[in-house]
């Protein structure tokens, strides 16, 4: 992967310093039914294009960083 991730604490860093944390999803409320929970747990959008996603800076500051990345071109933009 050639792109660099802008970490708010460490600056632009090589993505291998991070661990991919999946796409940003909103967890259902405590009263949601089983279908809603399963949908949330086991299904992803698998966007072809820009998506919001989490990256964990495990070889850096240890913060979770939200990134808007194009899954096709790896282009990263401000949201």
């Amino acid at each position: 992967m050639a792109f660099l991730i802008d970490c708010p604490n460490c600056g632009r860093r090589n993505p291998y310093e991070f661990r991919f944390g999946g796409e940003c999803k909103e967890a259902p409320g405590p009263d949601a039914d089983l279908n809603t929970w399963c949908e949330y747990l086991y299904f992803n959008e698998n966007m072809s294009g820009f998506q919001q996603e989490w990256w964990y800076h495990n070889m850096g500051c240890g913060d979770w960083v939200k990134v808007r990345r194009n899954t096709v071109t790896h282009e990263i933009t401000e949201d």
Binding site: W54, D63, W64
Partner: peptide, 10 residues
């Protein structure tokens, strides 16, 4: 665990 704890208050 560090990552896990950070994940649940991110």
């Amino acid at each position: 665990t560090e990552e896990w704890l950070a994940r649940w208050c991110r």
